[in-house]
Every structure is written in C-alpha cells, then in structure tokens.
C-alpha cells in the first residue's frame, strides 16, 4: 500500500468534506460533496475493494449527488436565507473527533499493517451475494423498491 497515495487521498477527501460541510453556497457544497466521495472511492481502491469503490462512485456521484443538486434547484427560492451557522455543533464535532482519535490511538492492537490477500474479484462478491447473502439481497431489493415508491408518493402533487 502506497503511503504517498494515502496522504494525497486523505488530504483531498478531508478537504473536500470540510468544504462540503462549511461552504456558504449550497451548489458549491454539493460539488465538494461529490469530490469527497471520489476521495472515499479512491480509499476503497487503495484498500483493494475496487468493486465497492466503483459502486460508491456510481451511486453517490451518479445518483445521490445529482439528486442533491436537483433538490437544491427545486427549493431554490429559499437558499438566499441560509446564513445561520451553529457553533455548538463545531464544539461537539471536535470533541467527538478528539475522543475517537484518543481511543483509536490508545488501542495498540490497531497499529497493524495490511496482510497480503487474494484479490477480491467481482466473481467472489457475486457468489457471496447469491449464496450466503441472498436473503439480505432480496430484502435490500424490497427496501429500495419501497424507498422508490415512498419518494414518489412524497413528492407527488397533493390533490386538492
């Protein structure tokens, strides 16, 4: 695993994520959100989970980010009023980060390097999906269908 690549990717991801969380203009934030997810996908590639990384790119950048942009456009009139910022959130987030980092650093069994593993092929993932995970897969399918219908029902024009 490449140390340099790791540093570059983490800086990119965290910076984009920070931008997505703090930028004043919604549209800029949404774009930074997409960039942050590119970074996360790159992490997945770095860790050898190419399939998940690709899925992440497709789903988040292809679908979720686009949905967010659509939502921003559909609720445009409201955007100008978005000026508030809650500083107590910053305190909580920083405190939580410190706590998590402290507990991670405190656990020595986590300072291990990655072992060599067999490449994770799509075939193996497919096999797992169709054998041991077939029930969860069906449930997810049902859930997605329900979410699809639910989203449609929610945004349908109310009949008067």
């Amino acid at each position: 695993m490449n140390g340099a690549a790791f540093i570059v990717i983490s800086i990119l991801t965290l910076a984009a994520a920070l931008a997505a969380a703090t930028l004043r203009k919604l549209m800029h934030a949404a774009l930074s959100f997409a960039v942050a997810f590119v970074g996360i996908a790159a992490f997945f590639f770095l860790l050898g989970a190419e399939f998940v990384g690709l899925a992440l790119v497709f789903i988040y950048i292809g679908a979720v980010a686009v949905l967010i942009v659509f939502t921003i456009l559909l609720t445009r009139r409201d955007i100008e009023k978005d000026r508030g910022f809650n500083w107590s959130g910053v305190i909580i987030a920083v405190a939580l980060f410190c706590g998590l980092t402290w507990s991670i650093l405190k656990t020595p069994s986590l300072s291990i390097v990655a072992p060599h593993i067999r490449a994770l092929t799509v075939k193996r993932i497919g096999e797992a999906l169709m054998t041991s995970y077939v029930w969860p897969l069906q449930c997810i399918g049902l859930l997605l269908t329900a979410a699809l219908i639910g989203a449609l029902v929610l945004v349908m024009e109310e009949k008067r």
Binding site: T13, L14, T22, A29, L110, A114
Partner: peptide, 30 residues
Amino acid sequence: TPTLQIFLIVSAALFSIGLLAALSRRHAIF
C-alpha cells in the same frame, strides 16, 4: 505504510466533519 490506525483516524475525521455538517448548518440538505 499506512496502518489500520491511520485509516480509522481518517474515518473518524470524516465522521466528525459529517456530524459538523449535520449539526451546524441550518439548511436541511446539509
């Protein structure tokens, strides 16, 4: 070579930034 700890710290940072966005911004999309 990056260790597991570093990955976890990065993910903790990502989590905290997400929390920040969810807690601090007034706009529902955030």
